[in-house]
Amino acid sequence: MIRFSSSMKFACLSAVLVLGACTHKQEAVTTAPPPAAAAPAPAPAPVTSSIIPGSAEDLRVNVGDTVHFALDQYNVEETDKALLGRQAAWLQRYPAVRVTIEGHADERGTREYNLALGARRANAVKEYLVSQGVSTGRVETVSYGKERPICTSSDEGCWSQNRRGVTIVSGGANS
C-alpha cells in the first residue's frame, strides 16, 4: 500500500478552472462602441443582435474556427491555410486574446492513440499560427481524442467532420 505525503494530496483540486468561460453576448448593443458623431442618421433599424468585434463569436462566425485533417494525418491542409491565416491576422488585431486549439480525431483509432493524434493536430494548428506571427504564449492546445465528435454516423461524411482542429477563445476577448 502506497502512502503519499499529505502535502501531495491536495495538489489537484485547487487547479480547477473553467475552460472557455468566455460569454457570448447576443444583445450587446449597449456595449458596442458609440458611433462617431455625424449627421443625424435616420432612425436606426432595431438591432436584435450583433457580433462584437474581437469576441469569441467574432472568431467563430466571421473568421472561422475549424480546420480538418486527413485520416491519421496531422499536417495542415493547403485548403485550410487561408483560414488559419485569417485567424492569425485576427489574433494580431486583438492582441489580448488567448486561444486554445482543440484537437479531435474520428472514431477509427483506440482511445489512447486518438488522444495522441488529437494532440498532434492541435499542435500543428498552433505551429501554423505561430509561423504566421502569433506569439506562442497566446496559444494553448488540448486533445479530446475521439471523445467529442460533432457527428456520430460511422461513415466518411462524419469521420471527416470529426477529424478537426478548433480554435476557441480562452481569454482576453471583447465581450
Binding site: K9, F10, C12, L13, L19, S143
Partner: peptide, 22 residues
C-alpha cells in the same frame, strides 16, 4: 485521466479517502 483542469492529466484516486491528486 481527468479533464478537471485546463490540461487533461493523469490523477490518482484513493478509494478509501476519496481524495484525488494530480
Amino acid at each position: 485521466m481527468s479533464y478537471i483542469a485546463t490540461k487533461p492529466r493523469v490523477y490518482l484516486f484513493d478509494i478509501e479517502t476519496g481524495k484525488q491528486e494530480v
